[in-house]
């Protein structure tokens, strides 16, 4: 072990090491700042933050936990996509295969399922925290609005994922949910005033959601695309804006009296 400093010294002078880590880290003000803005992932943060940002009691870390849950779900979701076909013939048996054929398939699916429930819970608690600290007040009004849309998108992400196993639970949950679309005023065939627009079960909101008049193969494909591609894309864009605005609006809100 005597030679450890020599070895690390040698490694750090190596061409490859130096190409990755441009400079040595010494614990001084300049390097602590460099560690943040020299790193693409960490430079989301400012170089310095207020003390409340590092204490649990003010933010509870809820926004960050929500983002972390989202990352977990993206990773497990991508792996699940390798084992899944969005067709009524194969969807259900693919999920069964996760149980019996795929190594660690059960834990993979469990992580995705419980992670999704967890994200819905923590995003609601995040909203409650932001309300209770009055953090939606000036100058953060717009970012609260972005947050509301992200909350709705979280519900929709979970909702569209419900149908993918093609089991009774998902099928009927989606049936109950999309039947509400049929009741939309003007645009749903059972909704008030829709007869004046000649709305039928074959051209209303529900039909657009399901790609048919019933929950079937098209509905499975649509929910799959919304779940795996469209809504995550929209969410990621809104998250960029959300995080950017947290910085631009002055970071974690501080008491203004």
């Amino acid at each position: 072990m005597k030679r450890l400093p020599e070895i690390t010294d040698k490694v750090k002078r190596n061409l490859i090491w130096k190409s990755i880590f441009r400079r040595d880290y010494r614990n001084n003000v300049r390097d602590r700042a460099q560690a943040i803005f020299g790193n693409v992932f960490l430079h989301l943060h400012p170089v310095q933050v207020r003390e409340s940002a590092v204490k649990l009691r003010f933010t509870w870390g809820m926004g960050g936990i929500t983002f972390f849950a989202f990352i977990t779900l993206v990773i497990t979701g991508v792996v699940l996509m390798f084992y899944y076909h969005p067709t009524i013939d194969q969807a259900y048996t693919d999920i069964k295969d996760l149980e019996f054929q795929v190594p660690f398939g059960v834990i993979l699916r469990n992580l995705h399922r419980w992670g999704a429930h967890f994200m819905v819970i923590v995003v609601m608690i995040h909203m409650f925290r932001v309300f209770m600290t009055g953090s939606y007040k000036a100058p953060r009004q717009f970012n609260w609005g972005i947050g509301v849309f992200l909350l709705v998108l979280t519900f929709l992400l979970s909702f569209t994922g419900y149908l993918t196993p093609w089991d009774q639970l998902g099928f009927w949950a989606i049936t109950v949910g999309t039947n509400m679309g049929a009741a939309t005023p003007l645009l749903g065939y059972q909704g008030p005033f829709s007869e004046y627009l000649h709305i039928t079960p074959y051209n209303d909101v529900r039909f657009a959601l399901l790609g048919g008049a019933q929950v079937g193969g098209n509905a499975l494909l649509r929910s799959y695309i919304w779940h795996c591609v469209a809504i995550p894309l929209i969410s990621i864009i809104l998250m960029f804006v959300h995080f950017w605005r947290v910085r631009k609006d002055g970071g974690i809100s501080k008491p203004q009296k």
């Binding site: 003000v29 943040i36 170089v47 310095q48 933050v49 207020r50 003390e51 409340s52 501080k254 009296k257």
Partner: peptide, 11 residues
């Protein structure tokens, strides 16, 4: 709480 906050390093 938090009104007298000082700044700390992120890293």
């Amino acid at each position: 709480d938090g009104e007298k906050d000082k700044f700390v390093d992120t890293f």
